[in-house]
Amino acid sequence: MSELMNNLLFGIAYLILAPVVGGLLAGCDRIITARMQRRVGPPLLQPFYDVLKLTEKQEIAVNLIQDFYVGGFLLFVMISGIFFFTRGDILLVVFTLTLASVCLIVAAYSSNSPYSQIGAERELIQTMSYEPMLLMVAIGFYLATGTFSLSEIMHGHAAGIIFLPGVFLGLVYILGIKFRKSPFDLAMSHHAHQELIKGTVTEFSGKTLAMVEVAHWYENIFLLGFVYLFFVWSAGWSILLGLLACAVVFFFEILVDNCCSRIKWQALLKSTWLVSLVAGFINLLILMYMR
């Protein structure tokens, strides 16, 4: 019973704290990025100011139904995070995340605008690229620990990274896509200008855009949770190791973001599938024959 209460508390904490931490992370991201470019950068709380400002904008839209889809995106991202932090099932998390990305893609399609539709197409290609690897992460944990249940994975005898180094590499690769970082920010980008204006979110404004932003914060938090999973086991101090790993991976993604230019979708699809095959599949193959 206490286990259940514990999990519930974690879930509620996630709902309240994730946007705060996610926003702070976004602020850190912008400061670090600025320093890498020899700028001072905005204040740490700038992402919150941005979102607050968005909510005060005049309410305009190209049609009345896109809010519904964007709302669905936010909702399902939150639900999948809840599954993650209540230590539900890892596959359930992955599937709910897919459901969320379907909502965002359909929202972009619904506006029938060229920029957002190309954004939606690219978002689709991105999803098709990273999904095999994401599923392989879940399969990897299943092979290593014999269960898809997160609570059991976190209380294993040893850190997942020992069995799943290849899978971890693959995950770090696709995290670039999920964080919407260069060179993989084809569908929409946080950088000032790109050829698609704002791609997927071109036709969203005001509160609708704010919802996308907040959903992105939620998403980032539990994506880092996946990284965390690789480094924790039953030992208490491994929590610190996990958090450290998250910080390192996050910094690495920012570094890559600032070193690379955007690639074409062909290169994205080809490289991601190749990494999934080489790093992910070979790792799983070895685990499967070891069983």
Binding site: T98, Y109, N112, Q117, M128
Partner: peptide, 23 residues
């Protein structure tokens, strides 16, 4: 399975997007 299902996702969503667009 892993690769086939991601292809499935691609072609169904693109169809879904087409019919839900507001023209």
């Amino acid at each position: 399975l892993v690769f086939g299902s991601s292809a499935t996702f691609f072609f169904w969503t693109k169809w879904l997007g087409k019919i839900t667009a507001i023209v």
